[in-house]
């Protein structure tokens, strides 16, 4: 039996750089698992995600999803981009509808697709703003539409590329709770790129820590052994949460401190 998502000996090199960004990354992810990938800036986290998304080709090695090799992007691996990437000339509804019409045309009637768009907007609590354009709503709301658009494609894997990085702390916490809620409800497999330790510990089942690039690879994988649903207030003092947090911080700041900062 294959793992659900299987990253094997994945190396990625860009043409102009002598060293590969990522070298021989191995990672197996089970169905329904929530995995966070954490590491310093420039360690190739986003590159890894882009390869899984199919937006970048692998130089060596590969990615299997349900036993089939990934070649090129597709709606089965929907991405929530860091900068939301909504199309500014479309309303929120239309942004989600574009993805739904494009990816589910064969499976649903027009009416069903309309309802499905509304259902996904409701899932992220954005029904009220469905006819607004992206420049009329806040950053957090844009990101929620981005999540709705990704979920509406009914992806096998949801890829989150630092989805809350550009948001203020309060909005971020609110969205994290929503993502946890959605994950609990839909049991989607999620890979999330982040550089926020608390976020990684709070949301994930496992935390994949990457060493510094170039030649970055998986340094350590931490299993977060906390039952769901998780409550950020109760967990703040929970020794298991604190231990997991410390372990990640230890990895990032002691054993694999940011080389750029050390040089300074």
């Amino acid at each position: 039996m294959h793992p659900f998502l299987d990253i094997t000996k994945l190396s990625i090199a860009f043409p102009k750089s002598p060293l590969p960004v990522l070298r021989e990354v191995d990672l197996k992810i089970e169905r329904g698992e929530y995995v966070a990938v954490i590491g310093h800036s420039g360690c190739g986290k986003s590159t890894l995600l882009n390869v899984v998304a199919g937006l970048l080709p692998a130089t060596a090695g590969g990615v299997l999803l349900e036993g089939r090799e990934i070649s090129g992007p597709g709606p089965d691996r929907a991405v929530v981009f860091q900068n939301h990437s909504l199309l500014p000339w479309l309303t929120c509804y239309e942004n989600v509808a574009l993805a739904v019409d494009q990816t589910l045309k064969g499976e649903m009637s027009k009416k069903q697709r309309h309802d499905w768009v509304l259902e996904n907007l409701a899932l992220v609590h954005m029904t009220a703003a469905k006819d607004k354009r992206p420049n009329e709503i806040s950053g957090g709301m844009k990101q929620r539409i981005g999540i709705a658009r990704a979920l509406a494609m009914r992806p096998k894997v949801l890829l989150l590329d630092e989805p809350f990085g550009a948001l203020d702390a309060l909005t971020r916490a609110h969205l994290q709770d929503q993502v946890m809620e959605i994950h609990a409800r839909l049991k989607t497999t999620v890979i999330m790129i982040t550089h926020d330790v608390d976020e990684a510990v709070l949301l994930s089942d496992r935390i994949v820590m990457l060493t510094n690039g170039p030649n970055a690879t998986v340094g350590e994988i931490l299993t977060v052994d906390l039952e769901r649903p998780r409550d950020r207030l109760k967990l703040a003092a929970d020794p298991r949460f604190v231990a997991a947090r410390t372990a990640v911080l230890e990895f990032l700041h002691s054993r694999h401190a940011n080389p750029a900062l050390q040089a300074a």
Binding site: A53, G54, L55, G72, P73, G74, P75, R77, A78, V79, F81, N83, S85, L87, L98, A99, Q102, T103, M153
Partner: peptide, 21 residues
């Protein structure tokens, strides 16, 4: 590139890609 990525993920190609993106 963001818009191109979005189009790639939802497999919007050819004329539709031109027209819509």
């Amino acid at each position: 590139q963001d818009y191109r990525n979005v189009a790639a993920v939802i497999r919007l190609r050819g004329l539709a890609f031109f027209w819509k993106i």
